[in-house]
Nucleic acid binder design. Structure first.
Ligand SMILES: [Mn+2]
Ligand SMILES: [Mn+2]
Ligand SMILES: [Zn+2]
Ligand SMILES: [Zn+2]
Lengths: 150, 150
DNA sequence: TTATTATTGAGAATATATACCATCTCTTAA
DNA sequence: TTAAGAGATGGTATATATTCTCAATAATAA
């Protein structure tokens, strides 16, 4: 009762998406999403990295909750899950500006470059249609060796 | 000494590839490769599935050796390693007839269809060249829902 | 304010894959 | 044909990534 914040009706895109589904807007969920928003697009973080970054910013969230939250944010369409290489999944912010894009990955050092290709997206569309599948997403991973690692 | 086979010089593509590298042709390695050859192209098996299939054909090979052998056969260019979805890597026979191809995967039931696309391969080539990377391989995974699962 | 129930944190449990090591066996060279 | 040497195997322990369990907590709606 020392703060009036508990009486305010807080509205946010995340909160709205959660509430209309019987889910709750928690500080942990906000922290995870804010991390991705602050770090900007083009960053591909693992669950472990999200965990470490939040600890460094003195906003500890348990690792179990990080995993739960990443899955939730992917389901909500706010994050994108990637399988770039070994060492588990990675996640990146999914924004309207950042169109569907693909990844060129150095198998030696992990350096990752992004690129777009309408031809690739179209190939995925065609393959789905031809087989009567309902398309969800296409992702092209190009495994290669970067100039520094050759 | 009951059999003369120990005096025969046995030659095989697998054996040759192994011997010129100081490696050995073992029954276990033959069993794993034969399984893929017998089952034919277009099958995507996990290490666990290879293990089970060999046990069923009364040719048990330890799981540790399965993992070692799959890695070896990939290095030798006889198998191809796939990351279709959850549940670990899968492997398929790599033959000359089976050109580079891509996969359309049902995220509900796992059904997988294969397709080819020169446009996709070209997009990978271009992306590598533009960034000065040495291309290894491009793989397009199309996540979708199959007719049975819609 | 209170009741409801989703969510969290901590650690156990699971899944996939690799490491270790004693034992075995494929190869090559006597 | 034999034997030495190096590579391979099997069984198990370990590593890593992720999920599960459950009691305690806290967001939401009434
Ligand atoms: Mn990206
Ligand atoms: Mn295939
Ligand atoms: Zn590199
Ligand atoms: Zn399906």
């Amino acid at each position: 009762m020392t703060l009036s914040s508990q009486y305010q009706v807080i509205t946010s895109p995340l909160g709205d998406g959660l509430h209309k589904d019987g889910k709750r807007l928690t500080p942990q969920r906000l922290k995870v999403l804010n991390l991705f928003e602050n770090i900007g697009a083009g960053n591909h973080l693992s669950a472990e990295e999200v965990h470490e970054k939040l600890i460094k910013s003195s906003s500890k969230v348990s690792l179990a909750t990080i995993y739960r939250t990443l899955r939730l944010l992917v389901q909500m369409g706010l994050l994108h899950e990637l399988e770039l290489s070994e060492g588990g999944h990675r996640y990146e912010l999914l924004s309207n500006e950042t169109a569907d894009h693909h990844h060129l990955i150095c198998i030696r050092c992990g350096r990752t470059e992004e690129f777009e290709s309408d031809e690739v997206l179209n190939a995925g569309k065609v393959a789905a249609k031809v087989n009567g599948f309902k398309l969800i997403e296409s992702s092209l991973n190009v495994r290669a060796i970067c100039p520094n690692c050759i």
